[in-house]
Amino acid sequence: MPEMLTATIFMALLGGLLSLGLATANRRFYVKEDPRIDDVEALLPGANCGTCGQPGCRAFAEAVVQAQATPVQCTVSAPAGVKAIAAYLGVAAGTAVKRVARLACAGGSNVAWNRASYSGSQSCRGAALVSGGGKGCSWACLGMGDCAEVCTFGAITMNQHGLPVVDEEKCTACGDCVAVCPKGLFSIHSVTHQLWVSCKSLAEGDAALAECAVACTACGRCAADAPEGAVVMINNLPVVDYGRGRDLTKEIIQRCPTGSIVWISEQGVVEKGAAAMPVIRQSPLPVVSEAKR
């Protein structure tokens, strides 16, 4: 019996001592944290996408509470969510221009030729490693939807011609599609960048047209029609100087023969110029075997 008693007393003493230690540690090393951070984090979507520039939603909440960021910088939050955070903290929501991912290719299966049929694993990354994926144009979208698969927000869908279409409402400009595309066709742009070159082909003239009906032929009409320096031809492609805001008008696209330079309206509708050859074909083009070229 006495052994048991000794053990019980010893354990009780030990327990008491250790709990005392824990209690002291809790007092001395307590980190005081603004309780608002938790509340703001709860109001955030929790996507941890990193578009705001912070490592995650928690870090963004901290930054907002410390007034180092404005609520609107979270591009994933719906406007109501942004307002809720601003109201909770009693700060202004801030202003931000919406940014979206844009694709610099219009070569769907109905306009762009294939020189080989690819039958390996259905991923653009994998296809690009096999002789570039079989499309005639080396710069073209391969259409296997790596971008649609990687998009966390379901903002990218593949259309019937195998081209990704970005839903500007859902797009948060997180940049995942930019990183995954093996041809580097996506880039993040402000929605105010309405003049858009939807081609990356460095070929010119007939060489470009031979592979794709909507390719930029590097004719330079857009550069000629734009005010001096607003659009310049570099490496057979027009490059738009978006710093020239008001100089960039719909006039610039009007004489484009293939419709490779377009105007994207605020609603995300793509308009081609008046001189652009209309695309009538809807069904995919056949594969032209190299043996017959």
Partner: peptide, 9 residues
Amino acid sequence: GPTIASWDT
């Protein structure tokens, strides 16, 4: 070996 798409290679 890599499969070749273009015979101009």
